[in-house]
Design a protein around this nucleic acid. Structure first.
Lengths: 212, 212, 212, 212
DNA sequence: TATGAATGAGACTTCATTCAT
DNA sequence: GATGAATGAAGTCTCATTCAT
């Protein structure tokens, strides 16, 4: 669950030794967990440090401030998303039966979300905490799945209004995200069931636009 | 938008005079708005009081602490939900065509959400702020729409596994809630489009369980 | 030693009741004292509050941050200086014998400095703490005495190079300030002696430019 | 600008190798510069180390704590002062015309100050940082020039009250120091002008006690 | 009853200093 | 000996809450 390729400009010091890398990972994991459990604001830097079994000072050696942890997590997610979703953009997707396509997309998404459970909280906060630069980041985040779907729809049914494609894609992505989130704190069995339902839900929805 | 029937035990003093009632309403409305805009934590009691044009002291005369405002809002939502959804439980619903039923439910829901835009933020926070008592409240909240749907499904197709009914209802409610939230900050036109899509989405989903 | 006419924009809230005014004065007096004793940086806001027998919170109710106390003191000095030095600008000064003039100026200055012992430390720090706006304030501060002297010299001996007048005035003011500072922590007797010497020193110096 | 004869007890380890000596010198020079620029408190040990191109650890190998750097600088100044001012104590000084004597003293002082620009900041801080031991050091510092002057006065005019001699000497030294400091951040031309004025100022002052 | 000044616990962050490598 | 990551006490400031007026 740790990230090796932190080319992360949010960080004060690039950890080069494995011990530091491990610390950074521990901070990020702990923070992710606590942000999910308690929310960003309610999670104190002290608490993060202590749960990561380091001192506050050490935390601040890697991250200039609390928000930087958020940004680092976001960056990690962007990176992960890129990696995980890359495979989906194969040309042949357009030829797949809808249900297979949806199956594939949602399994990918499930994998991504399982590996990055903080995704939602982090981006929700990022939005509030930084009105500044990371627009690019939001775009990067929103893009992958939404665009993937949008493109898929447009190709499968070129007659569809692009605006409509966008709406459908947006809604689908939002729904998928929520349902993943819904099952975040629940057991594996429930999660599996939700994923199955999500597939049905989305398949059914997209069929409305593609099959007739 | 104000509530008359505050039988709310969260409040320090039952406002009996209209001036107090009006103040409480103003506090709740202001708080709801600010919680949506800035989030619960970032909204200070001082800011609420000042925007409600009263003093902090007065605010604390009605609410023992900040969380009580949250709880009062939640209670207001529960109450509103009960009122708004009551009409749905008419017996004849079972006889309606699915699409008409969904249409009716979602319009109701839309009305509810429009009138209580803070619903989501409030319950999200309530969950964090009070691990204590309000389980009952969550249940009360979840109940109306979820149970409505669950009951509807069970009646329309008695052969369905009750657990499955619950899952489908839960997912539907979650999805509807999210999509309402998605359109909260957008313009009327977008909101209408989202509602329309939501109807299609849910109709399609429920059909999977009812039509065959 | 307290100031009544705080029209001070550094302050968060204009104290209107006498109790508040008294608090502000106490803060300023305590801070002035501690800045002199320990320096600005080493003086903590907590320490100021505690010595002023109020809570930190109260301190921050009047001053947005630590630097604001510095600025408020500076503003107080500017105001005091203006008041105290006004009388010096009488036209007839030019006609006075040099020694009488110097006597008068230095007595005034002594009075000012005795009433505002923090003058030096405060402006020294202000310079570092705020590269921002208060240039006007510096000018206001430096002006009174320096300009007074400069004008005096130019009038008494119009043949003097203005640049030279400025230099002489600057040096004189600097010297006077330092010697006041030198005697700040010493007893009354020493202070009186220093003042007497300062008069001789400055008289002698100015005579070099005026008597021939 | 480096000191060779550090017999300085403030230092943890007597650097015997030239490399260490060079490091210590670099630290002191860098620290002096930064203390002047930013002040003692605002200058971090880390910053000193990094600007001296060594590690913090190394810095702490030579100096037990931050204050020790201050003390070492002070010691360096004492040493320098002793060296530079030694020549002034030649017997014949008493026979010189006052103006020549002042000229000589102030040129010496100018040289000293130019070589040790941190003198003022350092001793100002030393005063605050260590209420403990270094009284001796203050005395040592004050001694050279003050005593020189005091002795000179007493010899030239034995009838003068010794206390008065001391006062005059103290004031003169203070004034000279301040004016040097005043010109520290200014250009060469200004500095020269200030030195010239200082000579006039001091000559005039001393004449009051010697010429009649 | 209404007000808002006062309180102080606690949040974020820095930096002198140590110590394992 | 040299390095710089790690530590944590301490500083500044905020904000929920109380209470005198």
């Amino acid at each position: 669950m740790a990230t090796n390729s932190q080319q992360n400009s949010q960080m004060r010091r690039q950890p080069q030794q494995s011990r530091s890398q491990e610390r950074v990972d521990r901070i990020l994991n702990v923070a992710e967990q606590m942000f999910i459990e308690t929310g960003y604001q309610a999670t104190t830097t002290r608490a993060i440090a202590s749960r990561a079994e380091i001192s506050v000072g050490s935390l601040y050696q890697f991250f200039p401030d609390k928000a930087a942890i958020l940004k680092a997590l976001a960056a990690k997610y962007v990176e992960q998303e890129r990696q995980i979703f890359t495979q989906l953009h194969a040309e042949e997707a357009i030829a797949l039966p809808l249900s297979v396509y949806v199956e594939r997309v949602l399994d990918t998404y499930d994998r991504f979300y399982t590996a990055n459970p903080g995704y939602r909280v982090v981006f929700e906060q990022l939005f509030k905490v930084t009105p500044e630069v990371p627009l690019s980041m939001y775009e990067e985040m929103e893009v992958p799945l939404t665009v993937e779907l949008q493109t898929f729809l447009a190709r499968r049914k070129p007659s569809l209004d692009p605006a409509q494609c966008e709406l459908v894609a947006t809604i689908s992505v939002e729904v998928v995200g929520t349902l993943q989130w819904l099952s975040l704190h629940r057991d594996e069995a429930f999660r599996a069931k939700v994923v199955r339902e999500t597939k049905k839900l989305i398949s059914g929805y997209l069929k409305l636009y593609l099959d007739e």
